[in-house]
């Protein structure tokens, strides 16, 4: 949590990564807004969301690239990255700072 706060600070007060990532997950997975609002760092994604098949994961990554203006390399994508909302958010923030 503290590491997350530090990253948040580095991006400045206007970091909208969490809101953007929630919107992307909602759009790609067809979830209810109320469901994605409840996502926290420990919310499990890959494996526990039946909507996430390999095509959906690929679409999710493409949407993240387009909307967050980042590039995701193939070798950065693994089970851990997609395991929780917190991991995916930390990854997105780290990418956007570059």
């Amino acid at each position: 949590m503290r590491a997350d706060m530090a990253q948040h600070k580095a991006l400045g007060a206007h970091d909208d990564s969490a809101a953007q990532l929630r919107a992307i997950l909602r759009d790609v997975l067809g979830l209810e807004p109320s469901q994605v609002e409840r996502f926290n760092d420990r919310t499990e994604l890959f494996g526990s969301l039946p909507e996430l098949d390999s095509m959906a994961v690929a679409g999710l990554l493409t949407e993240m690239e387009d909307r967050l203006d980042i590039v995701i390399e193939d070798d950065e994508v693994d089970g851990e990255l997609l395991s929780t909302f917190g991991n995916l958010l930390a990854f997105a923030r780290a990418k956007r700072r570059r």
Binding site: D27, L29, E51, E63
Partner: peptide
């Protein structure tokens, strides 16, 4: 609207 083309079950 929503990006139905990204969905597993687009409806």
């Amino acid at each position: 609207g929503e990006p139905l083309w990204r969905r597993s079950e687009p409806g």
